[in-house]
């Protein structure tokens, strides 16, 4: 199993529903977030291009955060989901320094917190909170090892890119362009 997410920049309107849904689902404290929206504008009026991306932890195939964690609090679970064990995290910040996507942050209680691909929902066969709420349905979550999963099909039929591939982390959030 290899979980991944495809994010369709052609459909996203940047409403940030994914951000709020994640916050209410995962008790993310006010002032913090596990996912966020980036907007890129290119061109000169009126020849313009706009790209909006909903970004989060890339659950990298080669996760530098897991590698640098001194206690094993950052670890990989079934499907390649990168997680942090609250009780093992000492709050050293090594993983935050190691992440090229800046996807991690210190929870106000001190431990490092991040997107979990809603593994508690996925385990029950549900979509992640952000995917299930997205009004434009621009987010697709699924198993890349299953060639018939919607996410596999999308990556086969559409052009895509990943963020900062040069960081060499094998990111698993794909942006359809």
């Amino acid at each position: 199993m290899r979980y991944a997410m495809a994010m369709d920049t052609k459909k996203c309107v940047g409403c940030s529903d994914c951000v709020v849904a994640c916050q209410t689902e995962n008790n993310v404290p006010h002032g913090y977030c596990r996912d966020w929206i980036v907007e890129n504008v290119d061109g000169t009026y009126p020849e313009l291009h706009l790209e909006i991306r909903s970004e989060r932890c890339n659950h990298c195939g080669d996760a530098p955060c897991v590698r640098t964690c001194p206690t094993g609090a950052s670890h990989i679970i079934e499907g390649g989901i990168v997680k942090v064990t609250h009780d093992e995290c000492i709050g050293c910040g090594a993983c935050i320094q190691a992440c090229p996507y800046e996807a991690r942050y210190f929870h106000p209680e001190g431990y490092v917190d991040k997107c979990t691909f809603c593994d508690h929902r996925v385990a029950k066969g549900q979509d992640t909170a952000c995917v299930s709420v997205c009004p434009t349905r621009c987010l697709t979550f699924g198993d890349l090892d299953d060639p018939n999963s919607p996410v596999s099909k999308l990556l086969k039929s559409r052009k895509w890119k990943v963020n900062a591939p040069e960081a060499g982390t094998k990111p698993q959030v794909y942006f359809l362009i």
């Binding site: 409403c15 299930s132 709420v133 009004p135």
Partner: peptide
């Protein structure tokens, strides 16, 4: 109240609220 989730049978939302509804 922890979260608010759209009602799947609802034609206004088809089970998906917007950010304001979710928030």
């Amino acid at each position: 109240v922890q979260k608010i989730i759209g009602n799947d049978s609802d034609l206004h939302s088809t089970g998906r609220l917007c950010p304001r509804g979710t928030g």
